[in-house]
Design a protein around this nucleic acid. Structure first.
Length: 805
DNA sequence: CTGGTTCCTTTTTTT
DNA sequence: AAGGAACCAG
């Protein structure tokens, strides 16, 4: 058991054995960072530190999970489950659930994901009578988010000269007021957004000394992974938590800081030694991952950045192959080339699917690769993009559960109040929200007391039915578990049945998704029951609310909390034998035998949004560094001449980063190298085997930096986007009715009890027979077969029918 | 109020 | 290309 130390190099061991006092581990790419962190925790526990006193914070659930598993493996017992290992967000959310009452929040507060948050922004923007074109929810939300991450509140925001100037220049002077309204609205809704989980936790520690000291005493040892990606809020929290014992260990690599868009500041890691005067620093510079070629290329690239912690990463590994630089004509060709290469490598070098990763700058790039891989029958997994729990049908269903747990959650309420349709439309919702605002009560309360607010009788009935239904769900939770309640909700609302009856491809997928959701709730309920027997750590963190709360409620509340913090990557198996597709951001911390770094084009990578300042550009370069250092044996760097963006073809120049690659490690003999011919790139012009073989193929375009018009000359005009309608296509039948002059005595009849087979007269369509009655009670629809105008669907609430017999 | 159509915006990265 | 908002007819 002690030989875990033997597996470490000298530096790594130094980091593990340094137990007391602040420690910074500068861990270069592939230098065994995770190994050091996990071994260090295991060693702490072996040296008598109680697992309950150790806090380890990561940025992804995946990293947390892996860490826990590896510690368990080293220790060979189940003590590791007592550790506090998790993401900043999930750990703080858990603590806040116990402490929320200090901040005036309910313990069952909802966590708003980005969609919910933007929706709140939109609501307040509209309520303030501001134009939502100028104040786009995403723009405003981003400003608010940055402010929160920098611990700048609405008041500070309004008083900050620089921020005000920025907003003024952007013609958005009201952001400070929107920020203020947004914060108030979230509070009113009993909801915290992602940034609040950090901000509110900070406020808790800052404003409640007894809470601060409670957690200082609990977390005697603190470890932070990816310290280079922490933002000021996280930084202050760590400082506060660690102030008593100063057993703060941070691990990071300034060269891999890629989250400044989320408020991360590289200053945190650069200044660690100033923050803690007696800080011990360990540099891990031996890379165990990559070949010499790959590592050398990475080192060359990162040299172009200023302001790094000086270090030199080296490796004992073999030289390995040169890096293959490949240009293709189009994004689809890029996909095809990559899929072909994977196939070839599998045959030639006996790789498995799991040895390959295709990494790109933006999620939108995945499509071409997906198609190519599917065509070649190569199994793949896409990581990233939309999380399962942010799909519309899932969010709609979950909104029912949310409103059961937290009736103040207006966003959830608005989602479901008329889903499925129950005759409570926009007008009614607006009215309810307005009433809630003027009386300063929740929208739910307005619905509960609906008759005080002058709704029309029909609407009132619909509201009452809705309220009764939701209340029945809530009371059911008192003696049924969360899964049983969820199943009941699905049945009672007809959601499950309606999706089941929808046999379209999307409908079937949605139905399956709902089933999957129900399964995940079941799974959660089952594991929670097991956990409560062990009584994990109820000693410290418990609900301090005195109200009787059923276990069903606790379980469901905890479930809702964790699903919003889950990302797409969390429910996919990283070890499956599939090719992995993901953004470079998502690939941080991972390694693969063969890596394809795709889309190395100006505007895309470096991204067009991130070339305006030196800081932004350097971050893009760090991203490039990250993608290079994911590769163990083989690396391809690919880019395309043209690609589709927003549905139209655009042309990009090769990325400026390509010029930074040292020529001696490059192999340009693969597809597309001929594209450089005659383009004045010097060493780049090699006619090659591939082109000769293919008689042109992907690479023979010839134009390095040609114009779109030029491309048209060579390849012919692109197919017209909207082809002219061939003359043989019969035009869509026009449903213009044959004129009908209503009878002189035409009076609309009461159609409440209209039956099939009855004869009716329609103002425009004339006489006909009712062939079918359908639709819901509040929106009945009759199908009428008219004498001259054929079959029509008539909505009885609006169309006027005269019953003849 | 509802369902269908058309028009418009979007994609940088994520907890 | 695709999803969402705005618009319109029944």
């Amino acid at each position: 058991m002690q030989d875990y130390l033997k597996e470490l190099n000298e530096r790594q061991r130094e980091a593990v054995l340094h137990i007391k006092g602040p420690l910074m581990i500068v861990a270069g790419a592939g230098s065994g960072k995770t190994k050091v962190l996990t071994t260090r925790i295991a060693h702490l526990m072996n040296s008598g530190v109680d697992a309950f006193n150790i806090l380890a914070l990561t940025f992804t659930n995946k990293a947390a999970k892996e860490m826990k598993e590896r510690i368990e493996k080293i220790l060979g017992n189940s003590e590791a489950r007592n550790l506090y290992v998790g993401t900043f967000h999930s750990v703080f959310a858990r603590i806040l659930r116990a402490e929320a009452h200090h901040l005036g929040y309910p313990n069952n507060f909802t966590i708003y994901d980005t969609d919910d948050a933007k929706s709140v922004v939109k609501t307040v923007v509209n309520e303030m009578n501001l134009d939502d074109k100028t104040y786009k929810p995403s723009t405003v939300y981003n400003r608010i988010s940055s402010a929160k991450n920098a611990l700048v509140g609405p008041v500070e925001y309004a008083n900050d000269y620089a921020l005000q100037q920025e907003d003024l220049r952007g013609n958005r002077p009201a952001i400070a007021q929107i920020y203020d309204a947004y914060v108030k609205r979230c509070f009113k809704n009993g909801a915290m957004d992602f940034d609040d989980l950090l901000l509110k936790f900070y406020e808790l520690l800052k404003g409640f000394p007894e809470s601060l000291s409670k957690y200082q005493r609990k977390f005697k040892y603190i470890l932070i992974d990816e310290y280079q990606d922490t933002n000021p809020a996280q930084y202050e929290i760590i400082k506060l938590l660690g102030a008593m014992n100063e057993n703060v260990c941070v691990v990071g690599d300034d060269a891999q800081s890629i989250y400044s868009f989320r408020g991360a500041t590289i200053q945190n890691i650069l200044q660690f030694q100033k923050d803690y005067e007696d800080a011990h620093v360990v540099m891990l510079e031996q890379n165990y991952r990559s070949s010499k070629s790959i590592l050398n290329v990475a080192n060359e690239v990162i040299k172009n950045n200023k302001g790094q912690i000086p270090k030199s990463l080296w490796t004992d590994n073999k030289d390995g192959e040169k890096i293959r630089l490949v240009r293709t004509m189009t994004d689809n060709d890029e996909g095809k080339y990559v899929a072909d290469s994977i196939q070839e490598q599998k045959l030639r070098n006996h790789y498995n699917n799991r040895d390959f990763a295709i990494l790109y700058r933006t999620n939108a790039q995945s499509r071409a690769f997906e198609e190519a891989l599917r065509r070649m029958n190569i199994a793949y997994t896409i990581f990233g993009g939309q999380s399962f729990y942010t799909r519309k049908e899932i969010k709609d269903f979950v909104a029912y559960l949310r409103i059961i747990i937290n009736s103040k959650d207006e966003e959830a309420l608005k989602r479901i109040i008329n889903f499925p349709a129950r005759g409570i439309g926009k007008t009614t919702v607006d009215k309810a929200v307005l009433a809630a605002n003027t009386h300063n009560i929740s929208m739910w309360e307005v619905l509960e007391r609906a008759r005080e607010f002058g709704f029309k009788a029909g609407t009132l009935e619909a509201i009452d039915n809705f309220v009764v239904m939701i209340k029945s769900f809530a009371s059911m939770l008192q003696n049924k578990n969360a899964y049983e309640v969820a199943v009941h909700v699905g049945k009672q609302t007809n959601i499950v049945k309606e999706l089941f009856n929808d046999k379209s491809t999307e409908g079937v997928a949605r139905y399956e998704n709902i089933q999957e959701l129900l399964n995940s709730i079941k799974e959660w309920v089952d594991t929670q029951q097991n956990l409560s027997q062990i009584d994990e750590d109820g000693t410290m963190i418990e609900t301090s609310d005195n109200e009787a709360v059923s276990t069903g409620e606790i379980t469901l509340g905890a479930y809702l909390q964790q699903i919003t913090l889950l990302t797409d990557a969390d429910d996919k198996d990283p070890n499956a034998d599939t090719v992995k597709l993901m953004t470079i951001h998502a690939a941080k911390g991972l390694e693969f035998g063969c890596v394809f770094a795709a889309g190395l084009e100006e505007m895309l990578f470096p991204n067009g949004m991130a070339v305006n300042t030196r800081e932004e550009l350097e971050e893009e370069r760090r991203l490039f560094y990250v993608v290079i250092t994911r590769a163990k044996q083989r690396l391809w760097i690919t880019y395309a001449n043209t690609r589709y963006r927003f549905g139209s073809l655009v042309q990009n120049e090769p990325s400026r980063f390509i010029d930074e690659l040292p020529e001696e490690y490059l192999d340009r003999s693969y597809a597309g190298a001929a594209a450089f011919k005659n383009q004045g790139f010097g060493a780049r012009g090699n006619t090659n085997a591939f082109d000769r073989m293919n008689g042109g193929g992907w690479g023979a375009g010839g134009g390095g930096r040609q114009s779109a018009a030029d491309a048209e000359k060579r390849y012919g005009a692109p197919p017209s986007k909207k082809p002219a309608i061939p003359s043989y296509v019969t035009p869509k039948p026009q449903s213009k009715p044959v004129e009908h002059v209503p009878s002189a005595d035409f009076v609309a009849s009461d159609t409440t009890n209209l039956q099939e087979g009855q004869k009716v007269e329609h103002q425009k369509f004339g006489f006909g027979i009712v062939t079918k009655m359908e639709g819901s009670a509040h929106n009945p629809v009759a199908t009428v077969k008219f004498d001259v105008n054929g079959e029509k669907k008539i909505m009885l609430n609006y169309a006027k029918l005269r019953i003849i017999q």
